[in-house]
Design a binder for these strands. Sequence first.
DNA 1: ACCTGAACACCGTTCAAGT
DNA 2: ACCTGAACACCGTTCAAGT
Lengths: 238, 238
Amino acid sequence: MVARTNSRTVDRKAAKADAGPALSREAVIDRALDVADREGLAAVSIRRIAQDFDVTPMALYWHVKNKDELLAAMGDRVIDAVDVPDLPGPGGLGRLRPLLQRLVGMLARHPGSTELVQYRILQCPRGQLLAEQALTVLAEAGFDQQRRAELARAALQSAVMLVVGAPGAEVSVPEPDRQALRESKRAALAALPADRFPQLVQCAGAMFECDDPEAYYADGIDLFLAGVATLAGRLGTS
Amino acid sequence: MVARTNSRTVDRKAAKADAGPALSREAVIDRALDVADREGLAAVSIRRIAQDFDVTPMALYWHVKNKDELLAAMGDRVIDAVDVPDLPGPGGLGRLRPLLQRLVGMLARHPGSTELVQYRILQCPRGQLLAEQALTVLAEAGFDQQRRAELARAALQSAVMLVVGAPGAEVSVPEPDRQALRESKRAALAALPADRFPQLVQCAGAMFECDDPEAYYADGIDLFLAGVATLAGRLGTS
DNA sequence: ACCTGAACACCGTTCAAGT
DNA sequence: ACCTGAACACCGTTCAAGT
């Protein structure tokens, strides 16, 4: 309370304390993830993040090579936060389910950065583990190398798709207008001529809202697993 | 060849002829689609397109409300170019296949703009027709309203996913470096410890290259249809 | 109706310089 | 090691003005 040696320095430090933790690579990535989830990925800029830390834009370049590398690091961070359990011994295609559930669960916690995951998942440790396990399950189900790779990719992409394409997502739009945008889209469908578009008119509501995300994700995973199971069943016959 | 009234005007027109067709909303959208497909969506900017037309950036604002509207129009253009056939009378889930084939086929011709389609498909006529038909088929297969909507969305999104997520896609990266980037990704997987990542090492090649896109798309559509068929089969039993 | 000029508030990034 | 200042080449967009 008393020993202020230099008011200027103290003020600076106080301001920084208000603005959050000290600048560091980790802190920058964390902040970027936060901004992406709350305001959309488009809101993430070097200058904006710098401002949040009360620092010059060029200061970030010490901790991060450039914006592309920051985006990649954001994707990596999300993937590496997935808790991938050990693959249970021998077993069926059902072993894919927990993998997808955990991946989707984590992505849903970072909708703003989910699209980044798509390009990074095979380049970072946790994603590689995930892919290795999926490939193993698919191999044991009898899929050849080509099919195995295709289906493993499809699995990871389905997870990404479920989250970015969820009925209420539209992560690019900041929260405030999101509801309104959704409603206007719904109204446009509901206003279609009912004789030519009976289904769309009837399903207008269900197309844009998702009152139970958990059920939606579970259904999406079911759909993927059902497809893989059916393809596996055809392996002998064709 | 003779009656030049004003050399300045003639030169201007000649220069414009070199730069392409006259400025118009249609021409702007066409040009933007072209740039997106060749250099990635990030290369599409108001100023860049204006430059291609040898015109001031502000000139574009006469033909297009703003950049967002331009992007939306690009998506609409791609969707409305899909040739949607009439839905054949009563029949099974197999009727979804031609719908998906035509959609995927068109998207594959515009990989740079495919991600735009995701947000516009339910707002433009051809996309609405596509959705209506998909919903009809799903309804006739016995899916309730909620499931119908989910699966129709999944169908459209799977098409988008197949194209943007195709092994060699990476549409954001301009052609030149694309091959190199793919190769470096492959090498990274191939260099993994073979005892912990046997599958990934083995499938490294198949994960990043796609020597037969047609087969890849067909497999993706098969996977989706197999999933839907299986879910339909479960409808009575659960 | 259609386009330009000037201006504003944003970007990412480099490079030399400070501490 | 870590940060700043100045500068550059880009963005989207508005507004008044030209033809």
